[in-house]
Design a protein around this nucleic acid. Structure first.
Lengths: 141, 141
DNA sequence: GACAGAATGTTATAGTATATAGCATAGCAA
DNA sequence: TTGCTATGCTATATACTATAACATTCTGTC
């Protein structure tokens, strides 16, 4: 029978989508062992690097809407991974608890391992250009 | 106040996710004018290039599970964009109807326009390497 | 000080994509 | 004939995202 023709094969936008889906599926699978979703892990990393940051601030950085940050941080707080302290206005300053710090360390290792496997697939001479190109694609849109 | 530090900034996997999300949001917004979702548009393009292809064949090509192809093709058939013909076994050979062909042409133009805007953001000398790198990231996982 | 506007957090709801499990049907091979 | 495989379909669950609406608190201006 005739092989199937793929008209999307050479579209960078489509390749971008497939590549992202593949990486995210792998990340989600590995984070499941820690009881974390990808979005939760990224929030933990942001809080670790910015103690006292507010939900809205995290949302702006990660491109997550305020409305979606609420249940996310509620889950993390419910598991005692983060603590909230009043920070002026209605804002809560978010900080990691001790168990939160330990889990964040593990999550960071999982992420670093996956990123390393990803980078291995890009020729060494093209890695910085590749990252620059990706950043250019979501900056300003 | 101290600027927020972004520990994810230089991770290609994270940049990949953000870039993909940005492009997909833009694509979804433009396809809404045609009453199509991204996945529906890609299915129409596959059928157009492979008349008589089965649902399962499309799913394998696009990475969509059989179970999710069923409601997708049902919607397209319900709008009389595709017709199904018996093709041995339980398989349906899918073909575009005349209105389906017209809509597919429009969808192709929308996609081509977006891809062109995307490519503009990549330096000309890096475009083929960029596409190759993306393909390497989802091949074999 | 009073008031309008902006920012924050929250709830509720919906839409899109994806995954798994299970089932029925049809073809194929031993 | 029997068993295996492929296909199509349904149901269900999970992530992520999007919008709308609301209350609360701060800020800037008069």
């Amino acid at each position: 029978m005739a092989p199937i023709v793929d008209p999307l094969e050479d579209l960078p936008g489509y390749a971008l989508r497939r590549a992202s889906a593949a990486i995210m599926a792998k990340l989600a699978a590995r984070l499941t062992d820690l009881g974390l979703r990808p979005s939760e892990a990224s929030v933990l990393l942001i809080i670790d690097a910015n103690p006292g940051v507010t939900q809205s601030g995290i949302g702006r950085l990660l491109g997550i809407a305020r409305a979606n940050m609420a249940p996310l941080t509620a889950r993390l707080a419910g598991r005692d991974l983060i603590v909230r302290e009043a920070a002026g206005g209605r804002a809560h300053g978010l900080m990691l608890s001790d168990p939160g710090r330990r889990l964040t360390r593990k999550a960071r290792r999982v992420i670093a391992q996956l990123e390393a496997e990803l980078i291995e697939r890009i020729p060494a001479g093209q890695r910085s250009a590749f990252l620059r190109a990706l950043k250019a694609l979501f900056a300003g849109w």
